[in-house]
Amino acid sequence: MRKSISLLMVALVMGAGVTGSVWAAEAKTEAKKEMPGQALAFSNKKGNCLACHAMPGTKAEMAGSIAPPLIAMKLRWPDRAKLRAQVWDATAANPQTSMPPMGKHEILSEEEIDQVVDFIYTL
């Protein structure tokens, strides 16, 4: 399980290298839309996803380097419920994960999780 996750991450990251310029361009158009989910994802009092994940449209030095960048989410996570489950409790898929269990530990409310997932689905 762990191995496959790590391999997935490697694949993702290598993919990110190739498509990097593309998603940077897309980010500019996306960033114009104000979304509550974005604020939740960026705020260090709330989701604080940026502490670990880079996202399109964020400056590299603002984001942490702990986790893979959140990109092409719709493509990679066609099943929205699965993506939501990852955000709700990352320890279910990977007990060793550094990612805080956003829903399980009530870091975000159910509604806030939906908003964050809506937002990262645009990435």
Binding site: N44, L50, A51, G64, S65, Q96, H105
Partner: peptide
């Protein structure tokens, strides 16, 4: 609430940036 051990940050992720 954030479910971290000391090791999460200073063993597993030492050298990484958090923000």
């Amino acid at each position: 609430q954030l479910n971290f051990s000391c090791a999460t940050c200073h063993v597993d992720n030492a050298g990484n940036r958090i923000r």
